[in-house]
Nucleic acid binder design. Structure first.
Lengths: 218, 218
DNA sequence: TAGATTGTTAATCGATTAACAATC
DNA sequence: TAGATTGTTAATCGATTAACAATC
């Protein structure tokens, strides 16, 4: 018995596009469209139709020749594959501007994530309210992760503290890390880690602008 | 006369690593190290030394055999190449949680970006204070972009509004866009656009966790 | 000098795109 | 049926890694 498609290794490049398919297909389904073609998805997202078909062929799911993909079905398959349908619980470490904003960020809840704790090591901010949450001291982290079965830790501290915070989160028992600090973080145990660095993106953009204006002046 | 290295097309994959080199080399220079090898940079950032040498060879800059790269010099070259040394000005559109947090985000100033305006279309938030800034109505956007020569527009609105905001920013005259909304945005004129999507990264992480636990149960 | 490390070429690896038979 | 669109194979393109001569 050969393994199903969904069990094979899927390139990371493909997985990174899945959220975009999911969002688009949600939009379409909500606006009443039942079917969508690879070409239409490609146009909306800036890919080629070939890429779309390749990507979706990794899922346990098939389109229909001449009609395309069923929006509701594709939405359900993608959502399940990404683990977005699960209501995953997360904590944020770092109650600075970014950490507090993420704690209130509507988009998380809308895509199946629940922020259930906000931690900081500075006594000055511990105890302050951020929306429905109260900032807790780091000493309370392990107990909360255990009792509420937290799966994800968000690192929203300054770069110098990021590695130590990552270690604490891993020790506490989270199963994956989202690093928002502009620094490289290592995890033992090959725990999944994804970097989401806003300032890095700003620099990439700055570079593109710079090079474009240099090119214009030549 | 052949064009200098810096004028050739540099792969985007390489450019995306430059900010990480910059940060690492800044750290090292600040802690007093004068030289760093490709191997040491690779270890710190999770690359191979081969990748590091390839990447840095795109810059107008050389290392020295047996010693490596001079931290202060590399920092200066990278910083200039990325346009980080310029104090670029940016505006944020969207004064929700994320927009307000970014307006106060220390890391921007630390890397050469200056947030000089915060805009929102909702009358209820216009006029409120966010740190040193006051939220302005969208009608004031074009004048500010022109008078202060704003180069970068940050899109921090809900996905449904993102394309319209992008169009307004482009019309106002910014030279690049950073999109934080979970949706695909198109720009006319091939204006540089970089996506920085936090929720997308969360889904990627969620997927990795999901697949790891599936693999464990097989 | 001997040994370490760069810069660069060539080889490998992976991702994207093109093409087209299968099919609804 | 004829035509549109999928799924998949093969070709292309690009990025990473390995290897090694040059060099300090």
């Amino acid at each position: 018995m050969s393994p199903s498609n969904a069990q094979r290794a899927i390139p990371r490049s493909v997985i990174r596009r899945f959220p975009q398919y999911l969002w688009r297909v949600q939009e379409l389904r909500e606006s009443g469209l039942e079917w969508v073609s690879s070409q239409s998805l490609a146009d909306a997202l800036g890919f080629t139709s070939s890429t779309v078909r390749q990507d979706l062929s990794h899922l346990d799911f098939s389109g229909v020749a001449k009609r395309g993909y069923q929006t509701a079905h594709l939405e359900q398959v993608l959502s399940q594959f990404l683990g977005a349908a699960k209501g995953r619980r997360a904590v944020i470490v770092g109650a600075g501007n970014l950490g507090r904003a993420l704690a209130m960020h509507q988009e998380f809840a809308r895509h199946g994530f629940q922020i259930v704790g906000l931690f900081d090591s500075a006594p000055a901010v511990v105890g302050t309210k951020v929306g429905p949450l109260t900032v807790q001291p780091m000493s309370k982290l392990p107990a909360l992760v255990r009792s509420k079965q937290i799966e994800i830790g968000l690192i929203a501290v300054p770069p110098t503290a990021a590695q130590a915070v990552a270690d604490e989160l891993v020790a506490a028992g989270v199963r994956g890390l989202l690093n928002l600090a502009p620094t490289h973080v290592r995890t033992a145990k090959r725990l999944p880690l994804v970097d989401a660095r806003i300032v890095q993106s700003m620099l990439e953009l700055s570079c593109a602008i710079e090079r474009k204006s240099l090119a214009r002046n030549n």
